[in-house]
Design a protein around this nucleic acid. Structure first.
Lengths: 339, 339
DNA sequence: GGGGACTGAACAATCGTTTTTTCAGAGTTC
DNA sequence: GAACTCTGAAAAAACGATTGTTCAGTCCCC
């Protein structure tokens, strides 16, 4: 590739002038024809500023990392899109990494920033990464924004309005007439799971319904865990007539379990899932879900990170716009007539 | 972060010695205690070599880009894992990008390499990117390996044994006794789609079965297209009793269409999909698929790219190991009794 | 016509590495 | 003891970009 000095030589100017013209330095005084010569030379040689040279000089890479637990879940598509769009808008490059590789001993995060490969990162930690473990993994001064979860301390975060989302899902079942409503939630150590459970409890409370521990499972968000949880929930007596599953992938597993058990959905059991993704349209029955503004989380996370990079203190943001949206499909219906 | 010169100062040596000790330069002659002092200093200061400085000096970024069409499809999880593992093994960083953003006018690819951000990339182009368009998008000397598709010319490629895979899927239906077997394939302009159709045709030919154009659809690999194709296939008379869907996401859409039409799977219609992914276990009925060695494609692609970077000529690789594997679930069965 | 202000650019330092080259001193050889 | 060779390390250049400083010329003014 062409370098700045080649441009300068071709244009018959010094490197500094070339650099300033190309960067539009307002403090540069130059004749129009000099400027034109530089621009033409850059165009002719198809100039692109070398990334390493610039990064070295500026001590900034203009790159961010987005670390998410399961790149393969369609769920993250929105988050990814949002983050990409926001990064692109500021001419930042986005590196995507998997947080399932970020285990306690790993130095990936530290290195990414330590080497100056990225200026900061957006991290969605896996559920089993504790606050303490997290702090051990990153440098104290690392610029980082957590998404969907929080950590005590001075890190920034962007989370969903989990309480409102889970509440909406629960309210949907309530409004269909369900009175025995279960919850398949995340692992208890996760603040996300706690907020969703809170929303569930809130909706029950508002409807004067009894919240029974026997109807709550806290295993995690994978299809396998969803299936397991649903099976054990079906073994309770009386069993719930409707279940809120705090993650769509878990809900997909839950549907599979119900099918194995020969329980009709939504005839005998209604299922509503937290989060929406394309697969939810193609399950049987198609899943009723609560769509959360995941795209906006991606956007906000990157924006918040960038503002941290330019000196602002870390912020804790809750994305409430657009609000949680009930996507009604076919997995929910009024409860069966009392037996 | 600590710099090399800080290490050197702390260890009481010159920068050059510090650098060579840390890089294990075999040509360096040094006393053991000098070496020890350097290593200790590096450890104490928690030294990580600055990425930009190194990249600038070496004119290599030690980063690769993996560009795939739909990051959100679970299908790509394996490819991604393979590529990540292979890159990590060589201490390369992997950037993940979306090729749905790579349209004709885009200069992303050119810039990525032009800026020196990555040394080369692995590209799975979207189906609508022609060979010509592709060549326009990348610099002539860019190091690039195409995955799952090929291009005439001197680019490297790593593809699946699509003929064998599609043949296996078709053979499965044949062995169940189907004689009227349809194909829902990719768009005709894609070489991938052509190879899969070839495998389908081959299996039919081997079984002395008639291949009917009316039973072949070529719309693409999305759930929507799969659904559309299946609907139109069901309108033929006689209709096929089994269909090979050349992509699992399309097959998911096809199942949805069949459900809408009230056609029983596998009672009235068998569906076998090309490619496996976790969602296939959770559709209704669970999809019988042919699992292709996508992980290995990721590994090989990165390895092939790295060998290109170290001077070898581009290779065209077909991954045959492990061979296509039939994952039998519940969407296939013998054809209904003749009416 | 000499001093000052302005114009339009060049000069030079710097970022952190890597790597070739140079070099001082100690040891060896004849 | 002069001329080597080794040893162990320092010096210096280079990668490509940015940016504060310097500088040569021109114009204006009194």
């Amino acid at each position: 590739m062409a370098t700045l000095s080649q441009i300068a030589r071709l244009a018959g100017v010094s490197v500094s002038v070339a650099s300033r013209v190309l960067n539009g330095d307002p403090k540069l005084r130059t004749r129009q024809d000099t400027r034109d010569r530089v621009l033409k030379a850059a165009k002719d040689l198809n100039y692109t500023a070398n990334y390493a040279g610039r990064a070295l000089r500026l001590a900034r890479s203009k790159a961010l990392a987005l670390i998410i637990p399961a790149v393969s879940s369609p769920l993250f598509a929105d988050l990814l899109s949002g983050a990409t769009d926001a990064a692109e808008a500021q001419e930042y490059t986005l590196l995507i990494g998997r947080s399932d590789r970020i285990t306690a001993g790993s130095d990936t995060l530290r290195r990414l920033v330590g080497e100056g490969r990225v200026d900061g990162f957006v991290l969605q930690r896996s559920d089993d990464l504790s606050d303490q473990a997290l702090e051990n993994l990153v440098a104290n001064d690392a610029r980082i924004v957590l998404v969907t979860s929080r950590t005590p301390g001075r890190r920034g975060s962007v989370i969903l309005d989990d309480v409102a989302g889970a509440r909406l899902a629960t309210q949907h079942l309530v409004s269909l007439g369900h009175t025995r409503i279960g919850l398949i939630g995340g692992v208890p150590s996760s603040d996300i799971a706690r907020r969703r459970e809170q929303g569930y409890a809130l909706a029950l409370h508002e409807a004067n319904l009894r919240r029974r521990d026997a109807w709550v499972r806290r295993l995690g968000y994978s299809p396998e865990m969803g299936a397991l949880a649903m099976e054990s929930l079906m073994a309770t007596d009386p069993r719930p007539t409707g279940v809120v599953v705090a993650n769509v992938n878990g809900a997909i597993g839950a549907l599979t379990a119900l099918r194995r058990l020969g329980i009709d959905v939504p005839g005998e059991m209604s299922v509503v899932a937290y989060h929406d993704e394309w697969v939810a349209e193609h399950t049987w029955p198609p899943l009723t879900t609560v769509k959360m503004p995941y795209y906006q989380v991606g956007v906000q996370a990157v924006q918040s990170l960038l503002s941290q990079l330019s000196g602002s203190p870390p912020q804790d943001i809750v994305v409430r716009d657009p609000p949680p949206l009930l996507v009604q499909r076919m997995s929910t219906a009024p409860p069966p007539a009392r037996r």
